[in-house]
Every structure is written in C-alpha cells, then in structure tokens.
Nucleic acid binder design. Sequence first.
DNA 1: CAATACAGTTAGCCTTTGCTAAGTTATTTA
DNA 2: TAAATAACTTAGCAAAGGCTAACTGTATTG
Lengths: 159, 159
Amino acid sequence: MIDTPDEAPFPSLSEADALPPSEQHAQQYAAVRNAHETELLEDYVELIGDLIVHQGEARSADIALRMGVSQATVSKMVGRLKSLGLVASKPYRSLFLTEEGETMARMSRERHAIVLQFLRALGVSDDTARIDAEGMEHHVSQETLDAMQRFSRQRGIPD
Amino acid sequence: MIDTPDEAPFPSLSEADALPPSEQHAQQYAAVRNAHETELLEDYVELIGDLIVHQGEARSADIALRMGVSQATVSKMVGRLKSLGLVASKPYRSLFLTEEGETMARMSRERHAIVLQFLRALGVSDDTARIDAEGMEHHVSQETLDAMQRFSRQRGIPD
DNA sequence: CAATACAGTTAGCCTTTGCTAAGTTATTTA
DNA sequence: TAAATAACTTAGCAAAGGCTAACTGTATTG
C-alpha cells in the first residue's frame, strides 16, 4: 500500500491542517539555510560600519567585546570578510569597509532599523525589541519590510 | 539608547542610533547564537509531529524530501534528536516523538502559526509569509508573540 | 629606550550540519 | 521465494564558527 497521501488539494481554514507541497516546503527551509549563511557576515559588516561611525574606527577587540566572542574568532572571521571583498585592512591595524561592504552595511542597518522601529510600534518593549530585531532582521523579505514600514508610518509610536 | 523616539512619529533611518552598551550588545548576539542552536532541532521536531498527524507516520525519506536535505543528513540529525530524548525509534523504522518532543512540537507549531497569521494580517502575501515565518519564528520572544497575537485578533485576516 | 601591557594573529582542537558513496535492512513484485 | 527496489545507516570528508594557548607586533610609560 504505497498510497502516500500527498498534499490536500486545497488549504483549509485552519492552517494547522495542511502541509505545504513538499517542494514548496523544501524551498522554505532552503531559504532559512541560505539566510544563515549570510547573516553572520552581515552582522559583522554592520557592526564594523557602526563602530567606524560611532567610535572613529573598528578594532578587533571592540568587535570581540560587542559580539561576545574571542578575538581569535574575530580574526578568523575578518579573514573571511576580507577574502569576500567586504573588508580591507593591513595586518595589526584597524578595519575598513570596501565599497561593497559599505553597501551591505547600509542595507543591513536600514533593515535593522525598520524591524526595530516596527516592533516598538507594535508595542514591544525596548529591550525585547532590540533582541528580537537582531534575530529577525535576516529573515524578513523586502515585501514584509515594506509592510512593516507602512505599519510604523501609519501607526507611529503607540500611546 | 538615548534617543528612543517617544515623540517623533518615525525617526529617520539615516539618523544613527547610538550603539548599545557593549554588554547589552553582546547579549543580543548571544541570544541569536543561542536561538540558532535550537532552531534546527525545533524544525525537525515540528516537522516530525506534522508528518505523524498528517500522514500517519514520520519517515526519514519524507523528512529529507521536505527539508530539502539528504537522507544521510536526516539520519544523523535523528541520532542527535534521539540522544536529546526528543525522538524515539527503532532502527530502520519510522519515528515517534517522546513526551518532551511532543511538547516542543506543540510549542513550535503554535509559535509558527501565530507568526504566519500575523504576517498575513499585516498584508503580506501567502508565499512570502510562509517563507518569512519559517525564518522568523525562532527569533520571536514571548512578548512579541503576544503583541502579534493581539494585532491579528484585532485586525483579523484581510480578504 | 627598555619593559610592560595591550592588540592582533596563528595553530590546533571541537561541534554542527551538510555532502557522497557504500553497506544494510525492509518491502514489493515477478 | 528470490530478485529488485526502496529506505535507512555508516563512514569519511568539508566548511563554518566557536574555543584556548602561544606567538608576534604596537603602544605606553617609568
């Protein structure tokens, strides 16, 4: 009896009822795996950009401190960022973003800001909003970002 | 931190937020790293639960198909889930959730449903909502979940 | 200007999560 | 029921992202 009961033809009211078609399902997970590949890179690049803006320079020790990670880990990661053409530096000196790195940093920062602002507008407390935004920002599509921005603009900050 | 915009309807994106204190900043990243450690486990457990409900049993081949991953990967992962006491099975037979696994599956499923419903209520298209929900669900705190649920209830699903 | 402290790098290890290829067990079917 | 097919497991590899310990370079300062 191989009658593998494939997907229900129509999605019912309560979503808990139907599994998406396998192929679509697989794509969802693939999208998440994909996001994971770039999100750490984006976090580093975003942080480096922020440090340059706010502290004048980006030093490995500060990155390690803020990321809550060892300096060795930062060193290795910076090597990866350099090999990807996102960061430039001379040995033992502080870090700079390439053109491409700048672009990534700007986009990350904007996305981060939109999500953070949105969560606050939704009525989430500041501390929680910061934590959740950090995790969510890499998994939010442009379409959802647009919806968030629309909502924040419309609602502003709740009373 | 300084400029939590309580008055400004929408703070401009170019306006650079000050950096949070290092310690708090590190905690944010730690929270994300922490979420990453459990989210794959949760995805597997949730999927296993869904397969049992919708197809009567959870087989490795189906999991591999739906996760978009090789069977070998599933086999290894299932070993981990078993060693964590979330899944039970006999060799070469299909999978079951332990009590603990059931609990995790239920919680994941609920969280997933809340996020998905919320995104739709926000006006995001179905396909996008599915993809984003899959990525976001593991990074959403209880406080934010509550806010999302409030919003969905209040606004309902737009037709 | 030498000693010390601080910052950055390198080497070597571990775990997780992927893969392919090859082997084992279960099921179907000729 | 034997052969073929499908499902599952195991072995061995790789890349990412952590770590500590040891080393090299830079900066301070007595």
